[in-house]
Design a protein around this nucleic acid. Structure first.
Length: 491
DNA sequence: ACTGACCGACAACCAGCGGACCCA
DNA sequence: TGGGTCAAGTTCTTGTCGGTCAG
């Protein structure tokens, strides 16, 4: 299928093509456009010695196009062949947005950075009237999916939706099929099928992006914080899609990789806080923190392990003030057996304070207080999850739980056969967990993201309007107090 | 069709105390 | 002078996920 060449374009137009995750630019010098002037808005413009042209990573396409339209007097001299978009039936979504959802969507739409529509005779350009790019931060349970569905409807352009887990892959596929009544493609879970609207896992998108990067006008990154990973960020770089929407409940990352996400997916443009929605669209909630003491033998073992750790630090001159100091310790442990011993001792200390006997006592009381309520108990380690399971006779889900068993347990939890469930990190993200009203964080990391996700499990509005409770059980006089305050910094 | 084993990716990982050095 | 930066050889362990392949 060839497109008619524009006769009025005069001699040698600038040609843009998609090529393996990049945009190839030919005819720049012939049109008297200086590459250095383009570099201001397209920093990674590079000469390609093999083709004697220029090249940018595909994610710069929108910026490149805008810059070129500014630099060229006659728009016709740009022959834009980057996107190869299929036609799409008119999309109609029946969802009514809530007011905060509408506000988020409109803010995102206003981030348009598409240049004026240039070569108007190309059906491929006409489809895209705007190219917004940005990230929305909204709490779990606030209906992020619905906003994305509306965004897809508004742009009505072939769209790739990228999600972290197979569970989410299936949820999105169902939603999209129901909403738009057309075939939905799928990359992931053993299937590689391209359609105008396609859902993909991050892993499959990583494998396919360079070959299908010209087929979408819009890309939606669900749980966009994953895009900060070293490998996953390539996905966004290889796609030419000028419109980008990122969704997450917790945008900022401790490693500052959100700055990279802003570059490749768009800046954070709108955020809604949990407390703005609590009581109205989400359940009201209480946070309770219980401190428990270590038993004397635990205390002794804890101090001994901590001692081993700190003595090594003192002897080796590591200051342990920031993350890089910790990295340093880890590096040394590769060659220095004493450093390794110190790290293992620290690990033992953590296991002791995370799984102390008194925590199980405290849990017993909590469970007594909430007998008939649906309760999820979270732990940091599988061992503790299994301990809880054994002592209180409640089912456990860890990553070792098979898919069939996992599905059955969640189903029974949903229908009320089980009112309690214990889990490690499995249910933090991406799994469709039935609503609960009580969450007990028996142990966990200092991650604010983990905390927010666990809190999200109890925030769906209750039918009777009752409040949800999240308990944190912390070992007193241990470094867990610091861990606990770190994770709650954002709330 | 499902399962288990394997692999790679990702994330969290954080006593406190100072000292040498560089640059504006 | 005052304030910010920061070591080297490439890195602990645990937990979780997706993709792949064999049976």
């Amino acid at each position: 299928m060839t497109r008619p060449r524009d006769e009025r374009a005069g001699p040698t137009p600038i040609t843009l093509r998609y090529d393996d995750g990049t945009v190839r630019i030919d005819g720049l010098e012939e049109a008297f456009v200086s590459p250095s002037s383009l570099r201001e808005s397209v920093p990674d413009l590079e000469r390609d010695p093999r083709t004697d042209g220029w090249r940018v990573p595909a994610f710069r396409y929108a910026a490149l196009r805008t810059a070129l339209l500014d630099a060229v007097t006659e728009p016709n001299r740009i022959d834009d062949r980057v996107l190869a978009l299929d036609s799409l039936p008119a999309l109609r979504s029946v969802y009514e947005l809530r007011s905060y959802q509408r506000e988020a969507l409109e803010t995102w739409l206003e981030t348009d950075r598409w240049g004026e529509n240039a070569s108007g005779d190309d059906p491929n350009d006409l489809r895209i009237i705007t190219a917004p790019a940005g990230v929305l931060e909204l709490p779990t349970g606030s209906g992020k999916t619905v906003i994305a569905l509306k965004a897809i409807e508004r742009l009505s352009v072939p769209t790739l939706v990228v999600v972290p887990t197979i569970d989410l892959l299936e949820q999105w596929q169902r939603e999209l099929e129901r909403e738009f009544d057309c075939d939905i493609g799928r990359f992931g879970g053993g299937e590689q099928r391209l359609e105008s609207i396609t859902v993909s896992t991050y892993d499959s998108a990583y494998l396919k992006a360079d070959s299908v990067g010209d087929r979408f006008g819009l890309v939606v990154f669900d749980e966009v914080h994953h895009l900060g990973g070293e490998g996953y960020r390539e996905i966004a770089r290889l796609l030419a899609a000028p419109a980008r929407l990122g969704l997450t409940a917790t945008f900022e990352r401790p490693d500052d990789a959100h700055e990279i996400i802003e570059e490749i997916a768009g800046p954070l443009v709108h955020r809604v806080d949990v407390d703005e929605l609590a009581g109205d669209h989400l359940a009201n909630y209480d946070l309770k923190r219980l401190e428990v003491a270590l038993a004397s033998d635990e205390r002794e073992a804890y101090e001994r392990a901590q001692e081993t750790f700190t003595t090594y630090l003192a002897r080796s001159g590591i200051r342990m003030q920031s993350g890089s100091d910790y990295q340093e310790l880890v590096k040394r442990s590769g060659s220095d057996p004493e450093a390794r011993e110190a790290l293992l001792a620290r690990q033992r200390a953590r296991e002791i304070m995370y799984g102390s006997a008194a925590k199980l006592e405290a849990l017993e009381e909590i469970l007594d207080d909430h007998r008939e309520e649906r309760t999820i108990v979270f732990t940091a380690h599988n061992d503790l999850a299994y301990d809880v399971s054994e002592r209180f006779l409640m089912p456990t889900i860890t990553h070792q739980t098979g898919t069939a068993e996992r599905r059955e347990l969640l189903e029974r939890f949903r229908d009320g056969t089980y009112t309690r469930i214990a889990t490690s990190n499995v249910l933090d993200e991406g799994v469709d967990v039935p609503d609960a009203s009580v969450a007990v964080v028996l142990s966990g990391s200092g991650s604010e993201r983990e905390f927010v996700q666990r809190l999200g499990r109890i925030l769906r509005p209750k039918a009777d309007g009752s409040r949800a409770v999240l308990y944190e059980v912390v070992s007193a006089d241990t470094s867990e107090e610091g861990v606990s305050s770190r994770r709650r910094d954002g709330t």
